[in-house]
Design a protein around this nucleic acid. Structure first.
Ligand SMILES: [Zn+2]
Ligand SMILES: [Zn+2]
Ligand SMILES: [Zn+2]
Ligand SMILES: [Zn+2]
Length: 722
DNA sequence: TTGTGCAGCGATCTATAT
DNA sequence: ATATAGATCGCTGCACAA
């Protein structure tokens, strides 16, 4: 059995393939993907047979094109079939109980090029995930709340002039996932059996209209043949199936080609957003909540039990979780956002200059907004420690001012928001990403729609982006065009060659945070670091200065206060002077610790180098913590710990004591040394924390860089190599 | 069993063309 | 302003060696 590389983002959201789901990147089309989620379609509550469903006339003229698209079902319903009872409980349980589980992948035939997928029309029990209404009076299907056509809003509550695009485009796909929201009824079983038996699928249809550009903003209700489209889309494929958080769905209401309302029924959309700036008006959130509540009432799914719903509610109860709901809509497994674009940097620079000319003190508040991509405003590591200004390559000095974090955060938010508004005015409503122009946004929407208009001429595999097709088509060439200039190896793709050549050039390697090893591949590095983390599960409160281990944080505080006082005494005013915040921080720890100054001076005899804190296995207090606040381990935490560690080393290398730096405020003044022993465990925690903090991985990268710089400066000679 | 490197792909960024 | 191509990054799966 082969070992599998640990997934890097650890979210479970990336488990599309793990769970046998192949929305993207695979030709296989796993229908179970959609079926798996009981919440996925409120429509499933409805008795589909009660509708008179006809094929959308447009779709009848549709041509079959690409085979890999989002598995929407599209049904056009008569107007009089529009009104849906809010609590129509007709056979919901049946529906759900018969819902195939994720593991039913074998029941879901792989979709291949020559196969046809049944459209919804061909099934006897259509349970659409997309419904097209001819009605002029729109209503949101589940609860009948009207979205009045005449006063159409964008449903978002924003009043700016951004372009908001809903996932479905002018081209809508004729559903091929009949089973998507349909119960795994006998008919479905029959069908899947048929498919397995090798019978051809009914032809899959696609509604293809001339690709028109997205209308900018403003939902204009066209008179005449207006079509309202309700779309319920599965959320992220494979979302946390195992964790009990079911993938959810999203409802988009389209009138004509205008996306007017999107209701995202996803994890935390089941719950109120506490603070403002909602993307949906409160009433709509309320509606969404009602929907979910009804769902919860009416569904006693085997896979999503009520308790799980409650659990979800609890999970999202915290304000910090609010935006978690946005995450599942990031295309492709919740990818880490790419690096901040140069435009953003330019923007920031401009801002800085403006500020500088206006007021000096604002300028002094250095804000590293590099990290604050999109919604990440929690990680304000810039407030302390070293922050690298990537743009100039200049390293910012240690921040010693007593900042008010929230002010900075606000500034960052402002800057980021303003930048997005100014520089990226094209907004994807589904994932809240912004883009610089409509083309980019259009392209991006393919991630949501699954549109893949670029088929490989050789194998027929379709791609969303021409560049990816080009890359792909090279694999059909047997010739490896790209030769390594250092060895004789050749590669199909230039990018692969470049990656390979890093072996020789040692360029762009990934440094282990804990030792001096470098790795060519990020995943390798992370796996390696995990090893450190696992072994470094130090339980106890470690003094970074002398490696003593204290049983409690208070004890450590007491101990380190000694260091601090000593340092003050010996300090010959180099350039270090602790901030008041810092002193306060340490004093607080110390003062609360008078009772518990039972320091443990025992040093582990494990293979821990002298400079590394000893482990303390039987210590009850698990975390190294400032201010007695505790959080779970995360890459940020680890980096923070490392950061402090190295700051200490700076001080020591200079021959004088340096008080440990305060923890980065972005970590809520918390850092710790404990890591779960298992990688998977760690991953999970990492993900959860990141999600709850509404951060992304970019902060990790930034922190790592900072740390790497420190490492270089301080010549981290004694790596911890277990 | 574990670690490492490669293949391949999705998605985004950036420069350039229209 | 928009569209496009190429570059790039991040990710997973797989093969293979230790
Ligand atoms: Zn989007
Ligand atoms: Zn091909
Ligand atoms: Zn080579
Ligand atoms: Zn290491």
């Amino acid at each position: 059995m082969k070992s599998k590389r640990a997934a890097l983002n650890g979210s479970g959201n990336n488990s599309a393939e793990h769970s046998g789901i192949h929305f993207q990147g695979q030709n296989s089309f796993n229908i179970a993907t959609v079926v798996q989620n009981p919440i996925i379609s409120p429509f499933a509550l409805e008795n589909p047979e009660s509708y008179s469903c006809t094929l959308d006339p447009a779709s009848q003229n549709a041509t079959t094109t690409n085979q890999e698209s989002w598995p929407f079902n599209i049904i056009q319903c008569d107007k009089n079939a529009n009104v849906l009872p809010a609590s129509n409980s007709s056979t919901p349980n049946d529906v759900l109980d018969s819902t195939p589980t994720v593991g039913d992948s074998e029941a879901c035939p792989s979709y291949t090029e020559n196969q046809n997928i049944p459209t919804v029309i061909n099934t006897t029990k259509p349970a659409p995930s997309v419904i097209m209404h001819s009605s002029r009076v729109s209503s949101v299907i589940m609860h009948g709340n009207a979205v009045t056509g005449g006063t159409a809003t964008n449903g978002i509550g924003w009043n700016h002039s951004r372009t908001i695009v809903s996932p479905e485009r002018e081209e809508t796909y004729q559903g091929n996932n009949v089973e998507a929201t349909q119960s795994k009824s006998t008919s479905e079983d029959e069908q899947t059996d048929k498919y397995r038996a090798g019978e051809t699928y009914p032809e899959r249809r696609e509604v293809t209209q001339p690709a028109t550009s997205y209308k900018k903003n403003k939902s204009v209700i066209r008179e005449g043949n207006k079509t309202e489209t309700y779309i319920a889309k599965p959320a992220l494929p494979g979302t946390l199936v195992n964790s009990g958080i079911a993938p959810l769905c999203q409802i988009t209401v389209k009138i004509g080609s205008e996306a007017l309302v999107k209701r995202q029924i996803s994890g935390s959309s089941l719950f109120f957003r506490r603070n403002g700036k909602p993307r949906h008006s409160e009433s709509k959130l309320e509606k969404a909540r009602q929907v979910s509540d009804e769902d919860k009432k009416e569904r006693s799914s085997n896979r999503l039990r009520k308790s799980e719903c409650i659990q979800m509610e609890e999970m999202c109860d915290d304000a910090s979780d609010q935006d978690v709901s946005d995450k599942p809509w990031r295309p492709y497994y919740n990818y880490k956002p790419k690096k901040k674009s140069k435009h953003f940097k330019k923007f920031r620079k401009l801002k800085k200059k403006k500020k500088h000319s206006r007021s000096r003190d604002l300028e002094d508040d250095f804000i590293d907004v590099e990290n604050i991509d999109e919604v990440n405003v929690v990680d304000t590591k810039s407030s302390t420690g070293h922050a690298e200004d990537q743009e100039d390559g200049q390293e910012k000095p240690l921040e010693t001012e007593d900042f008010k974090d929230h002010e900075k955060t606000d500034k960052v938010e402002m800057i980021t928001a303003q930048w997005q508004m100014d520089s990226k005015p094209f907004f994807c409503e589904l994932c809240q990403k912004s883009f610089r122009n409509s083309s980019t946004l259009k392209l991006h929407m393919r991630c949501h729609t699954g549109e893949k208009p670029y088929p490989c001429k050789t194998c027929g595999k379709c791609f969303s982006f021409p560049g990816n097709l080009n890359k792909h088509e090279r694999i059909h060439q047997t010739v490896k065009h790209f030769k390594c200039q250092y060895c004789s190896k050749s590669f199909m793709l230039h990018e692969t060659l470049k990656k390979h050549e890093r072996i020789h050039t040692r360029e762009k390697t990934y440094d282990c945070q804990f030792c001096s090893q470098q790795f060519l591949y990020l995943c390798t590095k992370k796996n390696h670091e995990q090893k450190h983390l696992a072994e470094q599960s130090v339980k106890g409160f470690v003094c970074f200065h002398c490696s003593k281990v204290c049983k409690t944080a208070a004890a450590l505080g007491m101990h380190q206060k000694k260091h601090y006082l000593k340092g003050l005494k010996n300090k010959d005013h180099k350039d270090f002077s602790p901030s008041t915040a810092e002193i306060g921080s340490w004093s607080n720890v110390a003062s609360s610790s008078s009772k518990e100054s039972n320091m443990i001076e025992e040093r582990s005899s494990l293979n821990v180098p002298e400079s590394f804190p000893p482990s303390f296995d039987d210590c009850e207090a698990p975390l190294l913590s400032f201010n007695n606040s505790v959080t779970e381990v995360s890459p940020q935490n680890v980096n923070a710990a490392s950061l402090v560690e190295n700051v200490n080393e700076i001080g020591e290398s200079d021959g004088h004591f340096l008080t440990p730096a305060p923890p980065p405020t972005g970590l809520n003044s918390t850092m710790l040394m404990e890591a779960p022993r298992g990688w998977k465990h760690w991953k999970t925690r990492q993900y959860n924390l990141e999600e709850s903090m509404n951060t992304d991985h970019s902060s990790l990268k930034e922190s790592t860089k900072t740390f790497t710089e420190l490492k270089t400066m301080t010549s981290f000679e004694t790596p911890f190599i277990p």
